[in-house]
Amino acid sequence: MSLAVLRARVARLVAAERASADLSIDEHVLDAALVFSRRRPRRVVVDLVGTGGWYLPLPADWVPGFSDVLEVEYPAGQRPPAALSPREWWCPYGTPDGEHLAFKELTPPAGATVRVTISAPHLVDEDATTLPQSHWDTIVKLAAGSACLALAAFYSHQEDQTMALDGVRHGSKAGEFQSRGKAFRAEAEAELPELEAQAVTAAGGEVSFAGEMHFLTH
């Protein structure tokens, strides 16, 4: 699925005159993807190359304030994998060059491979997404709920202005969209605790979800 497909599915659920409300469906889709990412982040495995120092730059997928290091394997490629204890490293270690993975006592030699698994937000662009297909419906409901509530606020302002002019409150679009928005949100949010529990269980209870993220497109 891509941003274009998500946009179309949300628009069908919202079924509103979006132009008059200046509603950005994309904004609500990306916000929904962020909410999902907090509960089921993307797992990224990257091989870092030792520099001979006690800290290494984090991979390009690392997002400050969002990402966590889930596992550090060194030496990489052993059977079974040689996962380091979290007591042997810490992250992030900040320098003027950015955030790094630092080792408390270990110093991987130059050229050595350190395999790192991190959490990262899901990617969404016009052509593809890393959001898992099995949860697209939840993400679409989240986005539709948010969009409907935005429309409710828009129409509430319009209706207040109309009532001020003629003293009569006509059929309320604001009420309609508020009701629909709450219904979509309730359906989606009922599924989100289950997603979070599944994610923690799959990671052996080691995943934490932290920070904010507002740029999910590449």
Score class of each variant (00 low, 15 high):
residue 171 G to C: 01
residue 57 P to F: 08
residue 127 D to M: 11
residue 167 G to Y: 12
residue 142 L to K: 02
residue 173 K to H: 12
residue 121 P to R: 15
residue 55 Y to R: 10
residue 81 P to S: 02
residue 32 A to F: 01
residue 133 Q to N: 07
residue 58 L to H: 02
residue 169 R to I: 06
residue 42 R to Q: 13
residue 218 H to F: 03
residue 57 P to H: 05
residue 8 A to S: 14
residue 88 E to Q: 14
residue 137 D to Q: 09
residue 55 Y to F: 12
residue 207 V to K: 09
residue 116 V to C: 04
residue 48 L to V: 07
residue 31 D to I: 12
residue 88 E to H: 09
residue 41 P to A: 04
residue 142 L to I: 03
residue 108 P to V: 10
residue 194 E to F: 05
residue 88 E to A: 15
residue 103 F to C: 06
residue 168 V to T: 13
residue 124 V to P: 11
residue 87 R to V: 09
residue 126 E to Q: 13
residue 216 L to W: 07
residue 121 P to G: 11
residue 6 L to E: 03
residue 162 T to W: 15
residue 17 E to H: 14
residue 103 F to A: 05
residue 93 Y to N: 06
residue 96 P to L: 01
residue 216 L to G: 12
residue 196 E to H: 09
residue 71 E to P: 11
residue 156 S to Y: 04
residue 218 H to E: 10
residue 4 A to L: 15
residue 106 L to K: 07
residue 94 G to S: 12
residue 115 R to K: 09
residue 202 A to I: 08
residue 34 L to Y: 11
residue 46 V to T: 14
residue 193 P to H: 04
residue 56 L to A: 09
residue 131 L to N: 05
residue 131 L to E: 06
residue 104 K to I: 08
residue 54 W to L: 00
residue 98 G to F: 05
residue 107 T to P: 00
residue 157 H to F: 14
residue 84 L to M: 05
residue 105 E to L: 09
residue 148 C to F: 03
residue 152 A to Y: 12
residue 163 M to W: 07
residue 184 F to L: 03
residue 48 L to F: 08
residue 9 R to P: 01
residue 108 P to E: 13
residue 25 I to Y: 07
residue 113 T to F: 03
residue 163 M to E: 15
residue 14 V to D: 10
residue 213 M to E: 12
residue 154 F to K: 02
residue 142 L to E: 05
residue 52 G to Y: 10
residue 118 I to D: 01
residue 73 E to H: 03
residue 218 H to C: 04
residue 56 L to E: 11
residue 163 M to G: 09
residue 136 W to I: 12
residue 162 T to M: 12
residue 151 L to A: 02
residue 28 H to N: 11
residue 174 A to P: 15
residue 175 G to R: 11
residue 153 A to T: 07
residue 50 G to A: 06
residue 9 R to Y: 00
residue 214 H to S: 13
residue 77 G to R: 13
residue 180 R to E: 13
residue 181 G to M: 05
residue 125 D to F: 01
residue 174 A to W: 00
residue 65 G to Q: 05
residue 92 P to Y: 06
residue 187 E to Q: 13
residue 94 G to Y: 03
residue 61 D to Y: 01
residue 121 P to A: 14
residue 185 R to V: 01
residue 103 F to V: 03
residue 74 Y to F: 15
residue 108 P to K: 14
residue 83 A to P: 09
residue 26 D to K: 05
residue 170 H to R: 14
residue 34 L to W: 11
residue 92 P to N: 05
residue 180 R to I: 00
residue 112 A to V: 01
residue 129 T to S: 15
residue 131 L to H: 06
residue 167 G to K: 07
residue 59 P to A: 02
residue 112 A to W: 00
residue 113 T to D: 04
residue 203 A to Y: 04
residue 78 Q to C: 06
residue 145 G to F: 11
residue 108 P to W: 15
residue 16 A to F: 00
residue 126 E to C: 00
residue 90 W to T: 05
residue 176 E to T: 13
residue 98 G to D: 06
residue 59 P to M: 01
residue 161 Q to H: 08
residue 210 A to L: 09
residue 149 L to I: 03
residue 74 Y to G: 01
residue 2 S to K: 07
residue 164 A to I: 07
